[in-house]
Computed example of a mutant assay.
Amino acid sequence: MHKRYNFAIACLLTLTGSVYGAEGSAPTSGYEAEADQAQALLAKAVRAYKEQGDPVLAQLSRQGIFTTADTYVYVVSTMGVMLASGGPSSIYIGRDIRPMLDNELKVAFEEALTSPENNVTHSREYYWMNWRDGKRERKHVYFQRVGDKVFAAGYYIPRSTPEEARRLLDDATDALSGDTAATLEKINRLDTFFNRDDLYVFVIDETTATFAAHGADQRLIGISLSTLRSTNGELIGQRILAAMNGRNEGETSYGWRNTLTGAKELKHTLMKRQEHYIVAVGYYSAN
């Protein structure tokens, strides 16, 4: 899909998001600082616009007081025209993005742009290319309408939370208990139900100590855990098995490459036993 269509859809998803109240939604766990920064930047831009008017739009489109290393403000008019952006979307300034949308999306976009001005901050998550690393990542955006303009600022969420990893682990374990063969097949063909952002499921056959399924690297299917190494070269197969020795649930950590960002990070793997299978899902942290 052309980049400009991706951006238009991103704007649509941003502006049609749920309303979480005047303070915006609760930040994603582990991203409280980024959420504070985005909301502060948005409030600063809205305040400046209310005090100075349209001249502020030019300031928003320059690197400076309304941008940080990872956050910027952009502004869309209620007519669907990009008016300002301190980020890569500045190439759309002056363009009406509505013609880029199909009829169904255009209706939703129009409804969002005609929402009442009531000083309420809205919040929404969508997927967008992170200009810092070139990766498609989840982004949490706060936005507010001021007159005939909508101001927005957000932060990227390259890593899933422990709670999200636990939910996927529970879902996978339940699925495996219901239909083992079908579940293993779905994991191995990278079914989206078992792949959520940087989270994926892998399954170990404890009787053979081999991978019965892997939701990220099919080359590991049937491979013995005795050969598995972390990103720093450490053998980690025995550690994974030992964490489940005599237990129904376990957890371990090791260096692994984040499939979404491509970075070498610390992976925290959660595990549950289902008969002779060990079902596992891991989430990442920077260190």
Rank of each mutant, 00 (worst) to 15 (best):
N287A: 09
G24H: 00
G53M: 09
L101I: 08
T259W: 05
D36A: 15
I240H: 10
N103F: 06
Y155C: 06
S85M: 01
M82V: 07
S285Y: 07
Y200H: 13
V150K: 00
T183S: 03
I204E: 01
Y142F: 13
L228P: 14
A243Q: 10
M244Y: 11
T173L: 10
I97Q: 02
V75S: 00
F211T: 00
I236E: 04
F202H: 04
G255W: 05
N118E: 13
E234G: 08
T227F: 14
A33Q: 15
L241Q: 09
F151K: 03
G178F: 00
Y283N: 01
N103D: 14
E111S: 11
V146R: 03
F151M: 07
V19M: 09
A263Y: 09
S89E: 07
A33N: 13
A35I: 06
A182W: 01
A152S: 06
G237V: 15
Q39D: 11
V75I: 02
E234I: 13
Q144A: 08
T67K: 07
V107E: 09
P88G: 04
A213Y: 00
E275I: 04
E34P: 10
P162C: 02
T207D: 12
A45V: 06
L270V: 07
T210H: 08
A165G: 03
R62V: 03
E234K: 15
M129N: 10
L260N: 12
A165N: 01
H2Y: 13
S224F: 04
G53R: 14
D102T: 08
R196M: 09
I221T: 02
W131S: 12
P162F: 00
S18K: 12
S285F: 08
Q59P: 05
P116F: 03
E32A: 15
G215R: 00
T14Y: 07
D133P: 12
D133C: 15
A40R: 09
R229N: 14
D36I: 11
K267L: 05
R159L: 09
I278T: 13
V19G: 13
V81G: 05
F7Q: 07
A33R: 12
T227L: 15
R189L: 02
L41E: 05
H122A: 14
W256I: 01
Y49G: 06
I240F: 13
D179C: 00
L270C: 14
I204T: 02
T183C: 05
